[in-house]
Design a binder for these strands. Sequence first.
DNA 1: GTATCGATTAGC
DNA 2: CTAATCGATACA
Length: 206
Amino acid sequence: MLRPLRRAFYARSPVVVARALLGRMLVRETRAGKLAGVIVEVEAYGGARDPASHAYRGETPRNRVMFGPPGHAYVYVSYGIHHCLNVVTGRPGEASAVLVRALAAVAGEKAMARRRGVADPDRLMRGPGCVAQALGLTRAEDGADLTRGPLWIADRPADRDGRAIAAGRRIGITRAVARRWRFYLAGHPCVSAPRRTARRTKTLHR
DNA sequence: GTATCGATTAGC
DNA sequence: CTAATCGATACA
């Protein structure tokens, strides 16, 4: 029987949780049916110590959930258009999180393809905005408790398809760009390889 | 108050 | 390369 990962799993540093999430199955149960995918790409974000984090400058209405207990979803609107799913990690108040950047679909592909308007299975959830669109996640899911349904991550050994965990720079940020806090399954077709170099870099900040 | 930037994406 | 579009931030 598949159960959700318990809160203790999330109560660790974002880097540790990020790596531990690779190969785990994320499940979203809707009235229309069950959507699921294996996590293949993530990014870690620190709180007050990480200039690239939404929590770096303190609590706001948007990031409030980050400052709460771990194991909850932080869903925000990116560029006014897309939604992005994060998992809150660490101790309450630490405001660290893991951004879910890509999944390999294992259930509900048809519903995902309909929502995405895309047929290619590898492109259903490649990129954080695509993940949220395929799963139908919005600000309504902000604060959802991942240790219970209907949005949860399964307590089952990671299935990494025999692939190594690779690390690289986080995508799309301009601060603390030196940190190699993006983790992904090497060579996986659902991983979004960075295409452009990031815009203007503001801080290296190791 | 106004101006600009972004943990993005699709399209030209 | 750019538009899309809004919360947060920077600044007058």
